[in-house]
């Protein structure tokens, strides 16, 4: 870690504090757990997120990897669902596309207000909560997975069926009859 320079120590301290707060206070409504996979590398976290209620994701648990830059919190971290989540705002490789994780400078979709972008006052907790609300309400204007966007718009039932099947597959709960084969 010493190789990352002096900026990295600020980042590591900040991450340590966020980790401590999350552990001591828990997450709001216990929606997720997050922390470094191993304390030898404070820049790679893993988060387990519970699917929000009244959505097809309900009941599921989703694993995401958070990768922090050495100049965190100046730059936002990256969040990647592993395995990739089937959702309009998640790229097919699992990377989450959400305005709060973009700096005001880069705007891949041109749909975002500067006010809802990343800034150093944001934190892991706020980002994950934004992601949870994104799960409930996909933003079709800035889609990341075009096929999923189409399906969500044209055949929401099928979209929800795929999501539910995924949830069950991940938790090894027996699938419904039509998924059994």
């Amino acid at each position: 870690m010493a190789a990352r320079g002096s900026g990295a120590s600020t980042a590591a301290r900040r991450l340590m504090k966020e980790y401590m707060d999350l552990t001591k206070n828990g997450s709001p409504d216990g929606m997720f757990t997050a922390g470094p996979i191993s304390e030898s590398d404070f820049f790679t976290w893993e988060a387990l997120i519970c699917g929000p209620k009244d959505t097809p994701f309900e009941g599921g648990v989703f694993l995401a990897k958070l990768t922090f830059p050495s100049d965190y919190p100046l730059s936002p971290f990256k969040m990647k669902f592993d395995p990739p989540l089937f959702h309009p705002n998640v790229y097919p490789d699992g990377t989450v596309c959400i305005s709060i994780l973009h700096t005001p400078g880069d705007d891949p979709t041109h749909y975002e207000q500067a006010s809802e972008r990343w800034s150093p006052v944001q934190c892991v907790e706020k980002v994950i909560l934004s992601v949870v609300s994104m799960l409930a309400e996909p933003n079709l204007e800035s889609g990341a997975n075009i096929d999923c966007c189409k399906l969500y718009r044209d055949n929401k039932e099928e979209y929800e069926r795929i999501v539910r099947a995924k949830v069950r597959e991940q938790l090894e709960v027996d699938l419904g009859e039509d998924e059994a084969q």
Binding site: C50, G59, G60, A165, V167, R168, L175, G176, D178
Partner: peptide, 21 residues
């Protein structure tokens, strides 16, 4: 967390045999 989620999902599917189908 994973085990608890799995258990809850299993109980739900016991009540309503196959909600995905």
């Amino acid at each position: 967390m994973i085990l608890a989620a799995r258990r809850r999902l299993q109980e739900q599917s016991k009540k309503a045999p196959s909600p995905t189908a």
